[in-house]
């Protein structure tokens, strides 16, 4: 499977990437690690006319302490998140979830920014950033803006990023409390059929993988927990208000069931 032909442009600075995007608009796609985009291009589900390779922008790869927050460069690879001392101490859920993405080879190439900008509801990191109430920073030709994670994922593989913008940084509040990540799949390296990220930090937060057309928070469960419900009771409401997809791996009903079981286990694991 060979991708359709495209123009390849290698950006050596962020400004250069922005000017190519401004020039080529919706015809252009950014290429970071390529582990979401290239498989789609090989299946010809994506046929961008121009690929702007930003993989070489080393200054967008970092994990930094910013007081109450940790800032992560968009081009930081999953492997670097997995072994970051700062994350392991201050946001351990993110290091853990990054270590569960794909397999080691994928984690050597895939980037957090690429995973978020791809906006796949079946990916693990979007749910983690959503549970953490993270903030995403985007740079466009007209300047920089920040987007709360809760407003970032707008539809299936769609995000609030504009065609001329580059996701540059992700900020998450330090959350050293207990966490749980439950990923249910049939084969080791697969995407989650349903996944759950739970954080015990007050207020308790729960985000779901592959339970809607976007990564989502289990709002009904969170509300129940806030009102003092026990884990089991709160977990029963995991899929309330959601329309989970039906595919070869699971029906909508099965996903609803899985969500209640996995959310209960996750909540119990964090001691709620």
């Amino acid at each position: 499977m060979i991708p359709a032909a495209f123009d390849y442009q290698r950006a050596s600075t962020l400004d250069e990437a922005l000017s190519i995007l401004a020039d080529r608009g919706e015809d252009a796609k950014l290429l970071a690690g390529g582990h979401s985009l290239l498989p789609l291009m090989r299946l010809r589900l994506a046929t961008p006319a121009v690929l702007v390779d930003i993989g070489g922008l080393r200054d967008l790869s970092y994990v930094q302490d910013r007081g109450d927050e940790v800032a992560i460069g968009a081009l930081t690879r999953h492997r670097d998140l997995q072994i970051s001392e700062l994350l392991l101490n201050q946001v351990p859920v993110l290091a853990h979830v990054a270590g569960q993405v794909g397999d080691p080879q994928v984690r050597h190439r895939g980037t957090i920014g690429g995973s978020l900008a791809h906006g796949d509801p079946a990916s693990d990191l979007p749910a983690a950033i959503l549970a953490l109430d993270g903030t995403l920073c985007a740079r466009g030709t007209s300047g920089e803006r920040t987007i709360p994670a809760t407003e970032f994922f707008t539809g299936f593989l769609e995000t609030a990023l504009r065609p001329d913008e580059v996701l540059t940084e992700i900020r998450v509040p330090k959350s050293p409390g207990k966490f749980s990540f439950k990923k249910f799949n049939r084969r080791a390296q697969d995407w989650a059929i349903v996944g759950v990220v739970a954080l015990s930090d007050s207020p308790a937060r729960v985000a779901l993988v592959n339970m809607a057309s976007t990564p989502v928070r289990a709002s009904a469960t969170e509300a129940a927990l806030a009102a003092g419900a026990a884990a089991n009771e709160a977990a029963q409401r995991a899929s309330e208000g959601l329309e989970p997809p039906s595919d070869t791996n699971a029906t909508t009903e099965f996903r609803r069931h899985l969500a209640t079981v996995l959310v209960r286990r996750a909540l119990e694991e964090v001691g709620l």
Binding site: R10, G34, Q105
Partner: peptide, 28 residues
């Protein structure tokens, strides 16, 4: 041919990668 099986694994700067899911140009 779909980045699942790992038969195409090579080392890029000492780390394992699946060479079917990279452009040759990305290894420049």
């Amino acid at each position: 041919d779909t980045s699942s099986c790992g038969a195409c694994t090579v080392l890029l700067d000492g780390e394992s990668v699946k060479s079917c899911t990279m452009l040759a140009l990305q290894a420049d």
